[in-house]
Design a protein around this nucleic acid. Structure first.
Lengths: 174, 174
DNA sequence: ACCTGAACACCGTTCAAGT
DNA sequence: ACCTGAACACCGTTCAAGT
């Protein structure tokens, strides 16, 4: 990092407490959200939620280190902004107060899990062909998994959207 | 670890390649699943899924290091066993082949996200009172979050079960 | 106010040598 | 076959000293 900035390695400590602090700053920077580009239809809550969560995931996947980082970091302002926005949207859509928090956390869980999993598969499978091979032979002993190609299907984006749809379908609206 | 076994630190390297290998072994050991204790009603697919996923989460929370570890690890036999079981149960419950993988991954995502988040909040909030204080002041600038007590509600188990219910409700059955 | 190099503590691993 | 200590590389951080 000091190289990138063109300074001595120790100079950084003047500006920042320690490594952890750098992580906090970097993470929250990645997670800035500017909202949907054109003003959306006021009634399209599904579209709004979908857009925000897909952007969330995409932002993190652009910086794969951020995925493994998020869980252990403090809640920065940009994360809280997203949660606030999510709250408002869901509430307006008709999710009752008694269900609101559970709904938000379930969406959070879903995005976190999907993003972290996706990012780490990228790491593991740097060598695409070898990975296919490995997963195929792994599958052999698990018939249902094998026949559905659970481990071989690599339409991650599609799976993300589809599963998110299931979850949104399950949210109880007033 | 060498202390625990009562050997010199370097002796470990005879039995195991390196640190990573130890992690792989430890993780898969944690995730062993014995199935529901008493033979469940054959038709109670929801109960079966719920039991397996709650056990999954509980197993990992018993060893909080495992949560942050899972994403970057290889898929061990015990994990695959769980996925296989999940496949079979959902399929039998009536989830169509075209939806099956998305359904499985969405449950996986949910469990991963919930467990990792929960485990790391425990780490961060070693000091309960200070954490409450910190979260309260954080909430101030986010009215919807504040009024719903999103950050202060600590019924994690309840939220997990409830959100999981939403997701299961949203799965399309034939 | 801002930058720097020397020094230290910590930790994963290698290797040659033991039994 | 199994264990060990010495040694090394790596990295986050402290501190006293510079401008």
């Amino acid at each position: 990092m000091a190289d990138r900035v063109g300074s001595g390695a120790m100079s950084l400590y003047w500006h920042v407490d320690n490594k952890e602090a750098v992580f906090d700053l970097a993470l929250d920077t990645v997670l800035e959200y500017r909202g949907p580009q054109q003003k959306a239809e006021p009634q399209d809550w599904r579209g709004e939620v979908l857009h925000m969560l897909e952007d969330w995931r995409a932002s993190m996947l652009r910086h794969p280190w951020s995925a493994s980082l998020l869980p252990r970091r403090a809640l920065g302002p940009n994360i809280l902004n997203r949660l606030e926005l999510l709250s408002k949207t869901l509430s307006a859509a008709g999710v009752g107060d008694a269900d609101l928090n559970a709904a938000i956390w379930s969406l959070w869980n879903y995005v976190m899990g999907a993003t972290i999993t996706r990012a780490s598969f990228d790491f593991l499978d740097a060598d695409r062909a070898a990975a296919q091979q490995r997963l195929t032979s792994l599958s052999e002993r698990y018939p249902t998994i094998e026949s559905s190609h659970l481990l071989l299907d690599d339409d991650w984006d599609g799976a993300f959207r589809k599963g998110l749809g299931f979850l949104l379908d399950g949210l109880p609206l007033r």
